[in-house]
């Protein structure tokens, strides 16, 4: 690839060409699907949660190279976090982990954050007990 020019940096290209965690989860505990009004991209994230911790995450994305890379990276970052930690996940973590995105593509990382939040909301709706603050009745 040394004599190849690329539209995105190496990390983004790697996650686009070799996406991590691509697919769906059978019997997922939470699923979020969101669309970007700006460009029309659509992202879907499925989560498996055990004892309040995200054990597995999968994505499917209809979108450009940076949208696919953003969802790939987001699922990598979110795995192993507790639901509470994951609720404060931000798109900036995705941008940083990818080594930056072109300004016009930052919204792709926002879409990844929104997809994760939507999947977490779905999980909390299905598991109301998990939404109770720790130490509560």
């Amino acid at each position: 690839m040394s004599d190849t020019y690329t539209l995105y940096n190496q990390t983004v290209m790697d996650h686009f060409l070799n996406p991590r965690n691509m697919g769906d989860l059978d019997n997922a505990d939470g699923v979020g699907e969101v669309g970007a009004a700006a460009c029309g991209d659509i992202m879907k994230i499925s989560l498996r949660v055990e004892q309040g911790r995200i054990q597995d995450a999968r994505f499917k994305t209809f979108g450009c190279g940076s949208a696919i890379a953003s969802s790939s990276m987001a699922t990598e970052l979110i795995k192993g976090r507790t639901v509470e930690e994951a609720l404060s996940f931000t798109n900036q973590e995705v941008v940083n982990a990818l080594g930056g995105l072109p300004p016009v593509k930052i919204h792709c990382s926002v879409l990844a954050e929104e997809a994760i939040k939507a999947a977490l909301e779905d999980y909390l709706k299905r598991h109301p007990a998990a939404a109770k603050p720790p130490g509560g009745p």
């Binding site: 190849t4 686009f16 060409l17 991209d41 209809f62 979108g63 450009c64 190279g65 949208a67 696919i68």
Partner: peptide, 14 residues
């Protein structure tokens, strides 16, 4: 249908 153009373009280029 069901896929986006930039991804097609990037994979064609590679």
């Amino acid at each position: 249908e069901f896929i986006e153009g930039e991804g097609q373009l990037l994979l064609c280029d590679l």
